[in-house]
Structure formats: structure tokens, C-alpha cells
């Protein structure tokens, strides 16, 4: 943690050294105008980007202006203000729970399988939830009812693997501890 803090300090310190700040004050007039506008190269680049995005954007919005805009902006809002806070809060809860039990370092044994399982559910939700069951079966001639079972199986394997790893590591630690304890005092 101390290294992290010092890292943060170094980063900040190196971004605006005192010398630069004094120089900025001296040339405040034209500098202030430049600061309000920003880098001209950056402006030019962004203008190009917006022009291209606008050209494609009017075509994207041509058919269902409201619906597409809703999806476009809604995707960002839903991710940043719902999905991310949700999993961050759940994760913090798990870390706290392990911390309260005095085993904060064991968080990863739950975090990894849970996150991987959630990731699979997120990506393949339409198939796993069965909401495209009928269309999938009709169109492809393939059964559509195995996805939930397979996802559950994968989840079980992930948690079981994590548990196995945890037990193996615990056993190794215990064996090491016993070995040190059993050693005759001469060796110390």
C-alpha cells in the first residue's frame, strides 16, 4: 500500500513540476486562452472523428431514430450505472465477508469461479435463459434445452476446481507447518 501511495505521488509530482507552474503564471494571458480551447491537434482530430461518426450516425439513425439512440446511449448507461456498480458492490461484499472472517486472501477462490460463471451467463443469456428456444430449435434443427444444464455444470466444475485448489494449498500449508514444528530444536 505504501508503494502504491508513493507511486501515486510520483505520478502527480511528475505531471506538473513547480518550474512549469511558475512559468505558466508568467505567461498567463495567451496561456489562459489556450487552456480554454485545448490542444489544437486534439481538436482537429476530434473534429475529424465527429465528422465521420456523424456521417455514419445519420445512416444508423435513419430507420428508428429513437430506438437506435436509446440502444446506443442505453448500452453505455446500463453498463456504467447498473451493471458495473452491481458487480462492484457484490464483489466488495464478498471481500468484506472474507475479511470479517479473517481470511481476506481467500477471496479469489470464490471470486474467480463466480465471475467466470457470471461472464458465461452474461454472454450466452438468450440461449441459457431459453428465450430463443423455439426459434433456435426451428431454425437450426438443434436441441435448445441443454444450455442451462451445461452452464450449471460448467459453474459446478469451476467451483469444484477452485475448492480442490484451496484444499490442496491448505494441506500443503498444514504439512509445512507440521514439518517445522516436528523439527528438532537443534536445526533451528
Amino acid at each position: 500500500m505504501r508503494t502504491l501511495l508513493s507511486r501515486a505521488r510520483t505520478w502527480r509530482a511528475t505531471t506538473r513540476p513547480a518550474r512549469t507552474r511558475r512559468a505558466e503564471k508568467r505567461r498567463a494571458g495567451p496561456r489562459r486562452a489556450a487552456a480554454v480551447v485545448g490542444s489544437p491537434l486534439q481538436l482537429l482530430l476530434l473534429a475529424c472523428s465527429f465528422a465521420l461518426a456523424g456521417y455514419a450516425g445519420v445512416r444508423l439513425l435513419a430507420d428508428d431514430r429513437f430506438g437506435v439512440a436509446l440502444w446506443f446511449v442505453g448500452a453505455a448507461v446500463l453498463h456504467d450505472l447498473v451493471l458495473l456498480p452491481l458487480y462492484a458492490v457484490v464483489d466488495r461484499g464478498v471481500v468484506r465477508a472474507f475479511g470479517a472472517a479473517g481470511h481476506r486472501e481467500r477471496t479469489m477462490y470464490v471470486r474467480v469461479p463466480a465471475a467466470l460463471s457470471a461472464l458465461l451467463l452474461l454472454v450466452w443469456f438468450p440461449l441459457i435463459s431459453g428465450q430463443v428456444d423455439r426459434r433456435y430449435r426451428m431454425a437450426t434443427g438443434l436441441p435448445a434445452d441443454g444450455f442451462l444444464a451445461r452452464w450449471l455444470l460448467i459453474t459446478a466444475v469451476l467451483f469444484a476446481g477452485s475448492a480442490l485448489l484451496f484444499v490442496l494449498r491448505l494441506l500443503r500449508v498444514l504439512r509445512l507447518r507440521r514439518a517445522t514444528k516436528d523439527r528438532p530444536p537443534v536445526v533451528h
Binding site: 476530434l46 475529424c48 472523428s49 465528422a51 461518426a53 455514419a56 450516425g57 444508423l60 446506443f72
Partner: peptide
């Protein structure tokens, strides 16, 4: 079209 809107922002 979504790809072009995205890629325009991605390039910048």
C-alpha cells in the same frame, strides 16, 4: 453503421 460510428471514436 454502428461499427463506423464506433470506429470513428475509436480512431480518435
Amino acid at each position: 453503421y454502428g461499427a463506423w460510428v464506433f470506429f470513428a471514436a475509436f480512431l480518435a
